[in-house]
Structures are given as structure tokens and as C-alpha cells.
Design a binder for these strands. Structure first.
Length: 513
DNA sequence: AACCGTATCT
DNA sequence: GAGATACGGT
């Protein structure tokens, strides 16, 4: 139960008379989201003067990640509705789903904005600048909302109890339908998942029939990563009734250009054969981002099925005349562990940036002659020419540059001797997916980076270094933490870093079985 | 047990 | 179609 001092929301008589306002306010954690640095600084100061705990982020997407991670509990969200990443409403939606009151702010005093915000569940809509008076009563909104939520849950628990269904601290509704026409949800039709009940969030039908009497679907189920008990009684079973569990919809993070650039940055630092989600996550150092999310993004990126938000919009607007990429679903069956995403030539070049990206060409494995799908023999990066636009050499070029080849050979040997690749069960002898001796190739991170930034330039994106640093300057309250955030790297930095495979300080990953 | 890569889902 | 999730494998 949520408590403030001696206050218990279910019993108004238990208010601790000794609890001063300040004491109460000091227990309220405010998530402030505002890209306007002047405003956020002043608001933060005022909030802190009120004794609130404050976490300040600049972008709604970052706030979303923070909320998703659930590592920190926030009691209220105070957000600028005009977040540059256009995630303001998404943030609102997520916070509402989490029963966190949201106060939206805007520089515009617009009735439509206000109505829209309230309609979408905002607790309050206020015009900036916020004042001390507004903030002083913030805690009351929190308390009122807590009381409301508590009563709501109590109501639901009561209902659930009368139906002999277990309610386990998470809001979901149980509805019993009369019809007996259940044929199985999508998840159950899928043979692959027949063994377990897969609930990928959102609304899911959890049904059973006479073939399911082994109670396979009784007990723990996961909704949005949280355990939920979905029980049913015999009465229910005999009637073949359905239990509909409506889980809160899972909020997705959006891989914005800035976030993706961080991702690319991490890939560049790790290098081919070392691009593991966990390491990428660590290097990205984005609060709230999870390994699963990185993993998912890595998969999309490796398969070339991810498009930057700007590109999506661009493609939508231009309807992609005849540029269907039949290879998009052509996934690499022989995926190497930790492999660098191998970009398709046109995956990033939605505009022709060749004039600004001369010398940068990325070939798909399919496009590489005689590469047997490995790519290594035909594609490499000249690591020594660190101050040039990265090169991807064709076979012909390779034959003309034996010096490069020998240096590459050294890198290969160096890499092969690095224990980090010796993942548990992921070695060349026991795992066919592990890069065997002839498997390494070096995807040029410079090219990826160049193409990517070229694309952004093509869309007039302001992706200069300060902008990126700004975008990732997450928590001004603890700014020392952010000073360690990796900055955007120049091409030269990329080359110099990727040219070496640093002696790996970390031990072999995972554990030996 | 942790984590990776893939398949599949929403 | 992007992102989340389930699952098998190591």
C-alpha cells in the first residue's frame, strides 16, 4: 500500500497529525519532462524548494523509458506537451496506464490542446510558465489520485473475489462470456507456442476447452512482464467459459534517430563479433532502456527491417515507387553471435546522398562476389587509414592491396585470440552460428555512420554534436552522471577505435555449463 | 541462470 | 511494420 508518513489512503482517519506538508511533499517523486532548459531548470528549482524529489529529463521518449523500466517509482509526471520527439501523448498514455497522474504543460494556451490532453487522460493542463503556487499543491493531486486508484482497485478486487478469480495486484478485468464458441486465440493456434500460454500484452483471450483440462493455462501467466494469476474454477471449466484478460497495453519505446545513433555508436565501439545486446545497452547508457529492447532493435537492424522514423514518414509520403526490397525478409540463417548488422545498400539511403558520401558504399552479402555468404573474403575495412572516409573494399580492390590484407589478417588473428568471443556454447566447434575462422568480416561502422548522418542531413535534421549531447543529457538533477555519457563520435574517432580490438578486460561471458 | 538469436505476435 | 515477447539453445 502506498503511504505518505502516517497517511493511509484507505482510511482518512489515519492521517498523521505530525506529518507536515513538507514531509509529505518530500515523499512525492516528480518526473519533470521539458526540453526547454530554462523552464526545466526553474521548475526543478521550484519543485526542490517545495521539497519534492525531482527527476528531470528532456524528452518524452526518455521519460517513457524511465517509466517502462519501473526501476524508479514516480508519483506524478509534469511534462511539456510539445516534446520535440513527439512522444508527449505517448508518455501521457503510459503514465495514465500506470495510474500516475500527469500534468501537461504548454507554452500555448490552447483550448484544443487542453481538451485533447484531458481527453487522453491528463490530470491537468497548465500554461507555462508554471508557478510556485501551482507546484505547491502538486502533492494533493498525487494523494487524490492514489486514493482514487486504491478505491478502484478495491472495487475490482471485490468483484474478482465474488467470481472466485484471483486478483494479484495488477489491474485486469475478468469478464465471463456466455457463448461457447472459443476456437483459440492467435497464440494458441501457433504450434510453436502450444506449450505455454503466450500473452504479449494487450487484450488476450485465455480460453480452454476439453482438450485443455490439464490446467495448462491455470496459474502464472505473464502480461507485460508482470505475473498475473488467471484462475478459473470448476464451474467456469464446465461451462467452457472464457476468461478475458485485458492487460494494459504495453508501451513501446520509439527508436528515434538520436537513440539509434547511440545504438550505432555502441556498435562502433564494440566492433564486429562483439555486438551483444548487453554490451550495447551498457555503452548506450540510456536510462530505462532494456536489454530486450536493444535485442529487438538489433534483430531488426541486422535483418534490415528497421527504418528510422524520418524514413518511415518519408516512405509514407512517397509511397516508395517500386522499391520493394524482397530481401527484407531474407534473414541470414547463419547468424553469427555478436555480429555487426550488415546493412543493405539502400537501407539507409532513402535519399541519394552519394554526393555527400563519396567513397561510402556498403554491399550486402548477396551483392558481394564469391563471398559464399561469409563476406569476409570480400569485404573488409582498412583500419589503418583512419582519417579517410571508411572504405569497403571489393575483391578486386583487395587483390590490389595485399598490405591491407595482411593487416586484416592480423586483426583476424587478434580477434580470434580474444576470449570475449568465446561465449558459452558459442564457439566454432559447438555452435554453427559462431563465427568460424573464415567467418569474420568487418562491416565498416564509418559507412553506417556516414550514411546514417547523411540521411539525417537529407532531412534537415539537426544532428550536430551538441544537439545529440543535449538530447541525451538526461537527468540534470544528477548531472555528473551524464558527463559520462558517450558523445557523438567523429569519423576519425570511429576509425581509430574500431581499428583496434582492445584487449578485453571482461572475462568470458555467461557461464560455462 | 543469464543471455543470445530467432520466430512470432500485436 | 516497429517493437515486444516467447522460446530454444548454450
Amino acid at each position: 500500500m502506498w503511504k505518505l508518513g502516517g497517511f493511509q489512503p484507505n482510511d482518512g482517519r489515519n492521517v498523521n497529525p505530525m506529518a507536515s506538508y513538507r514531509e509529505v511533499m518530500s515523499k512525492v517523486h516528480v518526473l519533470l519532462v521539458d526540453h526547454d532548459s530554462d523552464c526545466s531548470i526553474s521548475t526543478t528549482k521550484m519543485l526542490e524548494l517545495c521539497s519534492y524529489k525531482v527527476t528531470c529529463v528532456e524528452l518524452a521518449s526518455i521519460a517513457l523509458s524511465l517509466l517502462s523500466s519501473r526501476k524508479t517509482h514516480f508519483d506524478i509526471v509534469l511534462a511539456n506537451i510539445n516534446s520535440p520527439d513527439l512522444q508527449g501523448y505517448k508518455l501521457l498514455q503510459q503514465a495514465v496506464n500506470m495510474d500516475i497522474p500527469v500534468i501537461l504543460m504548454s507554452i500555448d494556451d490552447n483550448a484544443f490542446l487542453a481538451m485533447g490532453a484531458l481527453e487522453k487522460g491528463a490530470f491537468l493542463f497548465i500554461k507555462k510558465p508554471v508557478t510556485m503556487d501551482m507546484l505547491k499543491c502538486l502533492w494533493q493531486h498525487v494523494v487524490r489520485e492514489k486514493i482514487r486508484v486504491y478505491k478502484e482497485k478495491e472495487r475490482i478486487i471485490g468483484k474478482a473475489a465474488t467470481n472466485n478469480h484471483t486478483f494479484k495486484g495488477i489491474e485486469f478485468r475478468l469478464e465471463v462470456e456466455e457463448e461457447n464458441n472459443f476456437t483459440g486465440g492467435n497464440n494458441m493456434k501457433n504450434k510453436r507456442y502450444k506449450g505455454k500460454n503466450k500473452i504479449c500484452g494487450r487484450e488476450v483471450l485465455i480460453g480452454f476447452n476439453s482438450n485443455m483440462k490439464n490446467n495448462r493455462y491455470k496459474g502464472k501467466n505473464k502480461i507485460c512482464g508482470r505475473e498475473v494469476l488467471i484462475g478459473f474454477n470448476k464451474e467456469c471449466e464446465s461451462q467452457h467459459q472464457l476468461i478475458t484478460s485485458k492487460a494494459k497495453s504495453k508501451e513501446c519505446i520509439e527508436w528515434t534517430e538520436v537513440l539509434h545513433r547511440k545504438f550505432i555508436d555502441a556498435l562502433g565501439q564494440l566492433g564486429e563479433g562483439r555486438c551483444f545486446p548487453k554490451d550495447i545497452l551498457e555503452l548506450m547508457d540510456v536510462p530505462g532502456l532494456t536489454r530486450m529492447q536493444v535485442s529487438s532493435h538489433l534483430q531488426k537492424f541486422r535483418n534490415d527491417t528497421w527504418r528510422a522514423p524520418v524514413e518511415r514518414k518519408f516512405n509514407q509520403n512517397n509511397a516508395l515507387e517500386g522499391s520493394t526490397d524482397s530481401n527484407i525478409s531474407g534473414q541470414n540463417k547463419s547468424r553469427r553471435f555478436g555480429s555487426m548488422p550488415c546493412l543493405k545498400k539502400n537501407s539507409l539511403l532513402i535519399n541519394d546522398h552519394s554526393e555527400t558520401q563519396e567513397g561510402s558504399e556498403i554491399l550486402t552479402e548477396n551483392e558481394m562476389p564469391n563471398d559464399c555468404g561469409h563476406g569476409y573474403e570480400n569485404v573488409t575495412v582498412e583500419h589503418h587509414k583512419t582519417h579517410e572516409v571508411a572504405e569497403v573494399l571489393t575483391e578486386t580492390e583487395m587483390s590490389n592491396d595485399k598490405q591491407i590484407m595482411s593487416s586484416h589478417q592480423q586483426h583476424r588473428e587478434q580477434l580470434l585470440s580474444v576470449p570475449k568471443n568465446a561465449r558459452p556454447g558459442a564457439n566454432s566447434s559447438s555452435n554453427p552460428r559462431f563465427p568460424s575462422d573464415d567467418f569474420f568480416y568487418f562491416q565498416d561502422i564509418d559507412c553506417m555512420f556516414s550514411n546514417f548522418s547523411g540521411m539525417q542531413q537529407g532531412f534537415g535534421m539537426d544532428m550536430n554534436q551538441s544537439a545529440c549531447q543535449e538530447a541525451f543529457h538526461v537527468n540534470r538533477v544528477s548531472s555528473e552522471q551524464n558527463s559520462a555519457l558517450p558523445s557523438v563520435k567523429t569519423k576519425n574517432q570511429w576509425s581509430s577505435e574500431t581499428s583496434n580490438f582492445p584487449s578485453d578486460s571482461s572475462e568470458t561471458r555467461g557461464q560455462e555449463n
